[in-house]
Design a protein around this nucleic acid. Sequence first.
DNA 1: AACCAAACCAACCGCGAGTTG
DNA 2: ACAACTCGCGGTTGGTTTGGT
Length: 257
Amino acid sequence: MVQDQEQIRKGPWTEQEDFQLVCFVGLFGDRRWDFIAKVSGLKRTGKSCRLRWVNYLHPGLKRGKMTPQEERLVLELHTKWGNRWSRIARKLPGRTDNEIKNYWRTHMRKKAQEKKRAVSPSSFSSNCSSSSNITTAEGGASFYDTGGKETKALSGGKKTGGVDDAKENEKREQGEYSLDDIWKDINLPEVNIIEPVYDGNLSSCPLMASPTPWEYCSDFLWKMDEEEESKNMFLPTPSGDHQFLSCYEYGKASLTG
DNA sequence: AACCAAACCAACCGCGAGTTG
DNA sequence: ACAACTCGCGGTTGGTTTGGT
């Protein structure tokens, strides 16, 4: 497991690396990241591979600006849950926790600065009212730190799934939130599936050729229950094994030149 | 056209929880 | 029951792009 420190690559991913990762995730699924990191020949940590996959290569990722509905939803959910980005991200298909986190950070910074300038509380969105603890813009660290009611309590333990789900359902049942309605708005038919950026290499890879892996998964991934998600990923079709293997071979060949 | 600051994005790090032997 | 390992999350940082002067 321990990879030589000097062999670990860091920094931006190359197309080649992306390609390899996509192939191997296709082969082995998106769970055993250390294993994938090792067998793929990528000089990356499993952690790094996972991050790249989740934030960039995952099928069904949306690109581009947040829609007003999404923005609203983010605000609303952040008010409820605080900085639980992955949780919020699950409610926004195609958006990653990192993306939402970045979005929140920049937008809250802007808001904080605006607020600072025009020391007028009314200029602040009502949705942000619970973010009254947005303290300083220049203070850095925690200008967006909390905002959610539960953040403080949750900061100690990160993985508290069930209870919150229950609360959420409860609220929804009470009609307090109409998330589903917002949802329908967001889940527009024209889903911007991520375009393979490495079309040069990938298009010639059997797996990557039409139907693309993105199409394998399409947007159902984002609708799946959290627990089920990974199980169904890249479920090989009856002929799928052949495709994956071809891809593997191709990847190897292209690596070794 | 050049410079600077703000905004944006991708990636890394540390920590805690879950899993496995 | 415990320790080691793996994974996922949130926080943070650094590089790049964009907009304003």
